[in-house]
Amino acid sequence: MRISILLSFLLLSSFGFSQFGGFSGRNWKRNTREFRMGFGATGFLGDLGGRDQIGTDYSPIDLDWKATSFSFMTGYRWRFAPQWAFTSDLSFGMLRGSDQFTQEIIRSSRNLHFRAPVIHSSNRLEFIVYAYEKSGRRYDLSVRKGSHHYNNQIYLFAGVGAMCFIPQADFGSGWTNLRPLSTEGQGFADGAKKYSNFTVTVPLGLGMRLATGKYWRLGIEATYHMTYSDYIDDVSTVYYDPAVLAASIGPDAALASNPAIGNQNWFAPGQQRGDPSTKDAILYVNLVFSKNITVSSFRIRTERWKGKTKF
């Protein structure tokens, strides 16, 4: 359902932009291949943290600004048509969430937290809804020769990716990997199933950029990543018996499973710990630098044409 709604939104947005905006892409073949690099902020939308209210189906409305973290990325963009491009990215980042940042009483009393280093690769198709591209010479009032370069674009994109994540928590002795602790009884006969540290993702987003020179462009991209995992924060189902975890794995497992404060009746074995009905989601907002590395076929053809017409 989330995928169909968001894809419909992107299609409607692309139609609206293409009707309202402009497109001057006669020089697009001068910018078909680019190297990308960037950095920015990450936001986690899942079971942990959130605003001072009950969760809102992992929408951006529930974003916890105090838990934002960082990401770095590099990639390659291939523009194969005036309004279409294909981009592959590889990013490293950190995701965070903590019940300590919310005043909602049940979330705050649950007292769970996590961080997760992530490695994320994605491939996406871009639809350029607005473009103004121009490069050439200009002259000022003193007849000094100069140049101007425009490569302004607004684009929408969607694709598919894969992410590796390692949820961790710190209870005073350093950051500890949570998956081996089976905090919801994963692997036990009456517990939850073991989860994978890998998930497929679906990136959907919007970007814009401006030229800063003949070869360089500066832009910003906002991406909403749907995932197929509900365990990026190690929280999904119900509480497991802490006595069994302590006896089978150790006291760290019992503490990581249930560090609740306040009304303990809310957090007894079998009570709700997370919401398995909806998967986790991620927000990326990146500042992106791109360098044009196209081998200019225009220049080669022009030089050949000039050579044939010389007398």
Rank of each mutant, 00 (worst) to 15 (best):
T199L: 11
Y150E: 01
S135N: 11
G159L: 10
T212K: 03
A131D: 13
G191I: 07
S147T: 07
A189N: 11
N197C: 04
K145I: 13
K193F: 07
Y155I: 09
G187M: 09
M226Y: 01
W216R: 09
Q153V: 12
M208V: 14
E133C: 00
S173M: 06
S196D: 13
S182G: 00
A169K: 08
Y155E: 06
A131Q: 04
S236K: 06
P203D: 10
A189M: 07
T212A: 12
F171L: 06
A169F: 06
L178V: 03
S196K: 10
L218K: 00
A158T: 01
A192S: 15
G185L: 10
V129T: 12
G172H: 09
A131K: 13
I232R: 13
M226F: 02
Q168D: 02
K214M: 00
Y132S: 03
S182A: 09
V143I: 05
M163I: 10
E133R: 09
S147Q: 12
G174K: 15
G161V: 04
G191E: 00
G185E: 13
Y224W: 11
D234N: 14
A169R: 13
Y130N: 15
N177I: 04
G185H: 05
L210A: 09
I166D: 07
V238M: 13
A162M: 05
T201V: 14
K134Q: 09
T223L: 13
I166P: 00
I128H: 01
R144T: 05
F198Y: 15
K214Q: 05
N152H: 14
D233N: 05
S182W: 02
N197W: 08
L210C: 14
V129L: 01
S173A: 12
N151H: 10
F165Q: 00
D230H: 03
G185Q: 09
G187S: 14
D234C: 07
T237M: 08
M163K: 06
L181H: 14
T199C: 15
L218W: 02
K145R: 14
L204G: 01
Y132W: 01
N197G: 15
R217D: 04
K134V: 03
L206I: 15
C164R: 07
G185K: 15
D140M: 06
G172Y: 07
Y239T: 03
S196I: 06
S142M: 04
M163H: 14
M226V: 05
R217G: 06
K214A: 07
L204A: 04
M226A: 04
Y130D: 07
R217Y: 03
I154S: 03
S142L: 05
I154D: 01
I220R: 02
F198T: 11
I232A: 07
G159P: 15
V202R: 10
M163Y: 13
L156E: 01
S182Q: 08
